[in-house]
Design a protein around this nucleic acid. Structure first.
Lengths: 178, 178
DNA sequence: CTAAGATAGTCGCATCTGCAACTATCTAAA
DNA sequence: TTTAGATAGTTGCAGATGCGACTATCTTAG
């Protein structure tokens, strides 16, 4: 049974409790909404990569990067383009190697870094996982019309760009160096 | 533990490294984009509440909730409406009480729970912080036109609703009980 | 060649946070 | 009343992750 609210409400006590417009509705505050939404979406997806395949997010990011570029690359490259700390990527790679999903080759030209690529087993898992994730994504976006999804992607892109999250062509070609 | 099954599942276990459309561009994958964007936006804001005022996100959420409802409420209520785990809220409240930003009163009707509210000092901090955060938010959204911001908020709302993140009126009145 | 500085990757440490167990309290039913 | 079950809040524990130090290697300048 609902407890009776103490009748204070927005009424002003002597002290001027809520002066000016200096109030903030968390539910309309975009940073909070983005955080909450991201957490919820991650939770919705985790059933696929986490429970079903035992991958955590950093591990999944490594596989996704390797799978998309169908080509070997360094851990540093993955860290840069997924904006994940290099130590996190390092641990993810270690775990993936233990499970024989990823292997690494010495780089002759620069023996500090390794070339990473998925093993056959890793690729199999990747190709099994991708359709599931894409389906989940569509499920999450199913509340939007086709046009709204486009708009949403466009707006996300603008905000990302505004925050410097988007690679320019120049940066991308520089990134090739990794 | 979900060991990978021997069969590859989607068939054609042959070589064929990148078959079909089973590829995923992380940069077009909405869950990844939301995660990255939320992290970046949080980082952009942390300068205000973290560095300047020594608050972490859960602490900030407690203050924001108390500030918006200009009324005392329980820790459980805050946990529910911010979708934060109750243990996290508990620790945040403890920290805020140590700093005398928040105080709690025994609830006569139910001695399990406490009524939380900001102290004068807490309110002062809150009213100093809010305009800064709102300014930051506007800064982040400055890459969007007024109409685009509206659209963005609307689309966020639809996705939130689709995920069950939005309170209906009925739930809201039920929540009053907390 | 040598030395200084940059970079790739690893690892220890500290922090954060979710989970689950626990206490105290409330509610409802026998 | 007694007892079983629910709920508010706290806390120990473990897993995840960022930071910074460290090693090894590369590059560039003298």
């Amino acid at each position: 049974m609902p407890r009776t609210r103490s009748g204070v409400g927005t009424g002003s006590r002597g002290e001027n409790p809520s002066k000016r417009g200096s109030k903030l509705d968390l539910f309309r505050f975009v940073p909070f909404r983005l955080n909450r939404l991201a957490a919820e979406v991650s939770a919705a997806l985790s059933g696929e990569y986490q429970e079903r395949y035992g991958l955590d997010i950093p591990e999944w990011r490594v596989l996704a990067t390797l799978g998309f570029r169908n080509d070997a690359c360094s851990a540093q490259y993955i860290a840069h383009c997924t904006r994940t700390h290099k130590s996190t990527i390092s641990r993810a790679v270690t775990a993936l190697m233990k499970r024989r999903l990823v292997e690494r080759l010495e780089n002759e030209d620069d023996r500090r870094e390794f070339q990473l690529r998925m093993t056959r087993k890793g690729k199999a898992l990747y190709h099994e996982l991708i359709p599931r994730l894409l389906r989940k994504e569509q499920e999450i976006l199913s509340c939007l019309s086709a046009q709204e999804r486009k708009d949403f992607a466009l707006l996300l892109g603008k905000v990302e760009k505004g925050l410097g999250l988007v690679q320019t062509r120049k940066e991308a070609s520089k990134t090739e160096a990794y």
